[in-house]
Amino acid sequence: MISTLVIMALGALVLGAALGYASIKFKVEGDPLVEKIEAILPQTQCGQCGYPGCKPYAAAISAGEADINLCPPGGMDGVRKLADLLGREVKPLEVEEKPKQVAIIDETTCIGCTLCIQACPVDAIVGAAKQMHTIIEPLCTGCELCIKPCPVECIHMQPITENLDNWKWKYPVIEIKRAA
């Protein structure tokens, strides 16, 4: 009886020590859940979720402070993936989903104030003081953050149209015919 207890106690001690050691030795840097959530977010960095970027929103979700349906650029697809990852329920988006778009600077109106450069979170605008500015289209995430700061309102958003590079085969639709 006593020997059993001793053996059990010893076993518990050894295993506990092993676990403790492992937790120190194999410590994961950062919060893996936040990283997983962040990988799902679109990295538009637009702040439409109410957080100053995708990472803070990811942290808020993982802390259980934020709902998973606040990111409009991610769309319903993103909500679904988040729900999958976190085992939460899929909810409709808080706001309407918009088509993908990019910002365009009307260069004849641009006065070269550099305010949009400072606003762009992903360095998609080039220009210099008193010089015409332009947006590098493939780098623009369509976050709309550059629209407001422009004092002469020369930036507008343009939806990305379909072209041969981004064209996709459609989901097969089956024609529904009226029965004769």
Partner: peptide, 13 residues
């Protein structure tokens, strides 16, 4: 890939 690149640029910025 675009999102990853955007994130990298955001962090650099």
């Amino acid at each position: 890939q675009a999102a990853e690149a955007a994130k990298a640029r955001f962090e650099l910025r």
